[in-house]
Design a binder for these strands. Structure first.
Length: 293
DNA sequence: AAAACAGCCTGCGTGC
DNA sequence: TGCACGCAGGCTGTTT
């Protein structure tokens, strides 16, 4: 799920469950995901109270007592599964051998649950990530933005500081399609394949157009549409926040409102032209060839 | 220097 | 039913 609106939704759900509570136990079920987990993560997190949360691009930062923040990225397939102790365990078969970790715990109720945090108010939050493209690290809270994964990120699209002038400046001289430029987290941070497609559709800009040619008047059309689609999606995810604590991890309803993403061959809502699918930089792009120029 | 690409992983849907 | 294949919402090196 994880583009900016999904990460924002997950983070709000995590805050609702964890903020103000103490982490009593961390179960680490493998050595790492995309990168190795930080050294002595269990010892550095256990016993700490959760102070606050912050999102930067598609990263979540969980501020802990003691001056460190847990930095979490959901990758392509990451989910957070929260449940109260005593809540019914979802029956699910897991391979033998995945059944226990070094500290003698029982089989995970979820496959691919690599990390489980338990709290002093009886909740358990699991990081489930089948493809293991996610990442977890610890960073000093006062230096969060200096972390190597955050240092090169561009502006937050929902900040007032993200203006058409700022976007234009980032696009000037870029000889790559606008689709690829918007996926570049150094240009603007937090957009992924879906919201880039949706924002370009709303702004009537062809995904094939050279990024440099979007600087100026087209950027002035694009920036409000980026903000609008993200806010609408956060709103749709937020409306199902309570679902977040369900073990099925279901989130959000915005997928019902995609105008182009995943709609190849279906009519454009505005002109009836069939939505096209092309591949750019190895990723699917969906757009209306008539409306987007 | 910027832009394109391979690679990391598993799961799901499709077509044979 | 089984199998091969293509595809998936991301990002980081490495190569061009």
């Amino acid at each position: 799920m994880p583009e900016l609106p999904e990460v924002e939704t997950v983070m709000r759900g995590l805050a609702a469950v964890l903020q103000g509570h103490r982490i009593t136990e961390v179960e680490q079920r493998r050595a790492g995901l995309r990168f190795p987990f930080p050294e002595n993560m269990v010892g550095r997190v256990e016993g700490r109270r959760v102070l606050s949360f912050r999102r930067r691009a598609k990263y979540m930062l969980m501020r802990l007592e003691g001056g460190e923040s847990l930095l979490i990225h959901l990758g392509m397939s990451g989910r957070m599964v929260a449940r109260e102790a005593g809540a019914p365990v979802i029956a699910r078969l897991v391979p033998q051998g995945a059944a226990s970790d070094a500290r003698g715990h029982n089989a995970p109720p979820e496959a691919h649950e690599h990390l489980v945090i338990s709290t002093d108010h009886g909740w358990r939050v699991g990081f489930v990530d089948p493809r293991r493209f996610g990442s977890v690290d610890l960073v000093p809270t006062e230096a969060e933005d200096s972390h190597r994964l955050l240092a090169a990120l561009g502006p937050e699209p929902l900040d007032d500081a993200f203006t058409d002038a700022v976007l234009s400046a980032a696009l000037v001289g870029k000889h790559t399609p606008i689709k690829a430029a918007l996926l570049d987290q150094g240009v603007v941070a937090g957009l992924g394949n879906i919201y880039v497609c949706e924002a370009l559709y709303r702004a009537g800009i062809s995904p094939r157009r050279l990024a440099a040619s979007v600087a100026g008047t087209r950027a002035a059309r694009l920036v409000p549409e980026i903000k609008a689609v993200l806010l609408e999606s956060i709103g749709a995810g937020g409306s199902s926040l309570r679902d977040y604590v369900r073990a099925d991890g279901e989130l959000g309803r915005f997928q019902d409102r995609f105008a182009v993403y995943g709609r190849e061959g279906q009519p454009c809502a505005h002109c009836g032209t069939a939505i096209a699918r092309i591949v750019q930089a190895g990723r699917s792009t969906f757009f209306c060839p008539r409306r987007q120029r």
